[in-house]
Computed example of a mutant assay.
Amino acid sequence: MLRVPRSAGVTTAALALGLLATTPAVGDEPAVSAPRVVAHFDLAKGQSPENIALEPDGSADLTFSTARQVANVTRQGRTRVLATLPAVTNAQTPVVGRAVVLGITRAQDGTLYVNYATGTRATGIWRIPSGGGKPRQIAQLPPTGLPNGLALDERRGVLYVADSVLGTVWRVPTSGGKPKAWATGAALEPTNPRPAARVGVNGLRIHRDAVWVSNTNTGTLLRIPVRESGCAGTIETRAKGLYAIDDFAFVDRHRDTVLAALTGGSELTQVRPDGTHRVVLTRKDGLSNPTSVAVRGRSVYVPSAAYFTRSDPNLLLARVHQRDRG
């Protein structure tokens, strides 16, 4: 999540700052092809799809940020609301100024976990029963932060949360309880001096014995090893020059190739293990400020929140080419 704009003027200024170049395309075949929008959503109802988790049947569970909802969307575009997070009086959420539901992750038994940012004691991780139902808060996070990306390590029984304002990766038991600041440091912190654009560590994924995160303000993709003890290792920079990177996904569980949502430029970018990257989908393909990515088999799912374009929030599906999986 980059941010929910308060006005079109502020949005335009935010997008003009910090533009970074991407690596030119190489190779003779795109990483992604046959994009198609399978569902269109309604901005007036707050249906900006922020983050995504996939169900076994190939449907997608999306967080609708300002609607405070979690919805299931089939590959044919049918949409069903699974849960609505409780309304908060006088929300004072940093950066966005309103209550928003952001990151989502799914357990094998179908339980969903989401991040709810409110600027109040309701800020934290909420659990939703399999198939939908009443959300319940299992952990409080600092109301001064913006809990954004979320991932689940079922083997260790912990959740990891990227706090975009406090520049922290939190670790929380799936049973709930007090969060632990698992990783901190300058690489995770926001760098934009304007409060309305201070978004540091953002997207978060667990991959090959490490927690991977993006930093929106610095345009970087970072890897944080998980030591045998469970503690965080030294933060490594794996890619730079990713303008307004939001969330991302790995194309192959065994390798480090990433598809990343560049929300500011409405692009999907392939990031190779050596850090080079190229754009594979653009606004012409249907993207409208994409915020997250999910990959299953040869399918890639890309939700677009339309935070800045203010046009056509949607869910796009495309095909991942086997050849570019290295």
Rank of each mutant, 00 (worst) to 15 (best):
N217W: 03
I138P: 10
I206M: 12
D247I: 03
E154P: 12
P290K: 05
V165C: 13
I138F: 08
S214P: 07
P143G: 06
A305T: 15
H207P: 03
G233E: 10
I224G: 03
V73I: 07
T74R: 14
L222P: 01
T282R: 13
R171P: 09
A249F: 03
P5M: 07
W212P: 01
K134R: 14
T120C: 03
H321V: 11
W170D: 12
E50S: 05
S33F: 04
A162M: 10
T234M: 02
R310F: 13
T218S: 11
H277S: 03
V320M: 04
P49T: 09
L141I: 05
Y116K: 00
P195S: 14
T184G: 05
R68Q: 12
Q47K: 03
A14Y: 06
T118P: 04
W170K: 05
E50K: 08
V320D: 14
V161G: 01
L54E: 13
L204N: 03
P179M: 09
A122W: 01
S299F: 09
A67Q: 07
P135R: 07
S266W: 08
A162P: 02
I128S: 02
P129V: 15
V88T: 15
G9Y: 06
R198N: 03
R238K: 02
V4K: 09
V258N: 00
S65N: 13
G124D: 10
T12C: 07
Y113I: 15
H40L: 07
F41E: 11
P56F: 06
R227Y: 11
L146T: 14
A91N: 01
T276R: 04
P49L: 08
P56W: 05
F250L: 14
S311Y: 10
N90H: 12
T257S: 14
P86W: 02
T66G: 08
N289K: 05
H254Q: 15
V295M: 03
N217T: 13
L17Q: 11
L221K: 00
P86I: 02
V158D: 09
G9C: 11
I206P: 00
N202K: 01
N314L: 06
H40Y: 13
L82G: 04
Q76N: 10
R68E: 03
T118K: 00
P147Y: 04
G185E: 07
K240W: 01
T309F: 08
D252G: 05
R136T: 15
L222T: 02
A187N: 04
V10E: 13
T282K: 07
T263N: 15
S292G: 08
V26F: 08
S214G: 09
L15K: 11
V73T: 10
L146G: 06
D256L: 01
L2S: 06
P303K: 11
A117F: 06
T237I: 09
R68G: 03
A99C: 11
P147I: 04
C231Y: 14
Y113A: 12
G219V: 01
I52D: 12
A25L: 07
P56D: 13
L188G: 00
A71Q: 08
